[in-house]
Computed example of a mutant assay.
Amino acid sequence: MADQCRVSAAALIAASEECSYVFNFKIQGYSRAKELFKNGECVASPPFSLGGYSWVLRYCPNRRLAGQVSYTQLVLDSDDAKYVKAQPRFTVLDKDGVPAKQLSGFIQQRIFPFRGASLGLLMDQPWSGQSEHLVDDCLSIRCDLTLIKDVCSEQTMGDQFVVVPPSDLHRHFGNLLESMVGADVTFHVGGKEFLAHRFVLAARSSVFEAELLGAMKENVGSPIVIHEMEPDVFKFLLHFIYTDSLPVLEFDTDQGEAVVMAGHLLVAADRYNVQRLKLICEHKLCSHIDANMVATSLALAEQHSCHGLKEACLQFLSSPSNLKAMMESDGYEHLKRSCPSALKDLIVRLLPVEMEVAKDIVMAI
């Protein structure tokens, strides 16, 4: 009698559980922010936690899409987050802290696939000057956030002969990066040579797509020289492009070196329009702001349109002791030379609300 092979299996029966959190976000100096912030620029809230994940709210006073509107955005801000299901509701509060029904918006359940993922709500803005929604020129936005977690229980089922493993696409592309089988483009960076696959780069970066496949494409077969970038930075940029991960930011290495590398990678990610990498680096810098690094980070934020990092730096410098320490740091002179506009924003932030004329003078200089 032939031997029989049986494979035991269990079905996962999905249910869900919910946890909720209410966060009030206050935008101080709303009228001034509305005047100074450009289209799409945002002010960020301090991070808050729900369901083991970190979240941040962003508010854009000016978002010109269909008329003049404001924009409230919820951002997932945790390193290890993947496919988080959440449901936010945004509401403007009146003077008494009561939600204004006509100024609220409800969003159906959405999936946040990774850190830096966001969703937002456009809000009509004819009310922006109405006093009942401003207290001492402060606008309050409430976010009711509900997190939905899937809960699974096991139920024995019949024979199952095939078990599908999780995706390992990143591992295969990582192996391709290491072996360089079929590589068809060569880069020279800081005296070192790197091989790559032009279609992989083009799929991950619109800049590489234009340079390698579009009208701007380099001569096929000729090495491409990358200027103003260190070899290690380009190496980690390639690693992220192939694997969508960046181990250098997660290793237990010297934090100072990791923060410096994050700054260099942010510049590279902005240069090649790798937006997720840029957000990862921006988050890393926001998490490691101190008196020695804040001037450099503020200059970086101003030069590369990192609104969250800029807000984190300005909040840090609102402390007189932090401001004094920053002015004594090596990065302060660089900040003065390279980004005087950031210093103007800092001065305007530090001036009291009643000194509106002084703020206008500073911004006009």
Rank of each mutant, 00 (worst) to 15 (best):
N39W: 07
D184Y: 06
G158E: 15
C339F: 00
A183Q: 12
E209P: 00
M1Q: 09
A66I: 07
L12A: 12
E333L: 10
A210M: 05
C339E: 01
G214H: 06
G97D: 02
Q125Y: 09
E209H: 07
L246M: 14
C281D: 07
K284R: 01
F234H: 13
K38D: 13
E17G: 05
L350C: 15
D345E: 13
F161W: 12
R6K: 15
R6W: 15
L335Q: 09
S341P: 01
S287G: 00
A301I: 01
A11K: 06
L285M: 05
K284F: 01
D290M: 05
A258W: 00
G129E: 07
Q109C: 12
A66G: 11
L249K: 14
T253Q: 13
H227F: 02
F251P: 05
Q68Y: 11
S45T: 01
L176G: 03
L335E: 05
E230Q: 15
V84P: 02
R115F: 03
M261G: 11
L36P: 07
N322S: 06
F106Q: 10
L277K: 07
G40S: 12
M157N: 12
S287E: 01
A210L: 03
L265A: 14
V362D: 09
V189L: 04
S287M: 00
D79L: 01
D144R: 02
L317M: 15
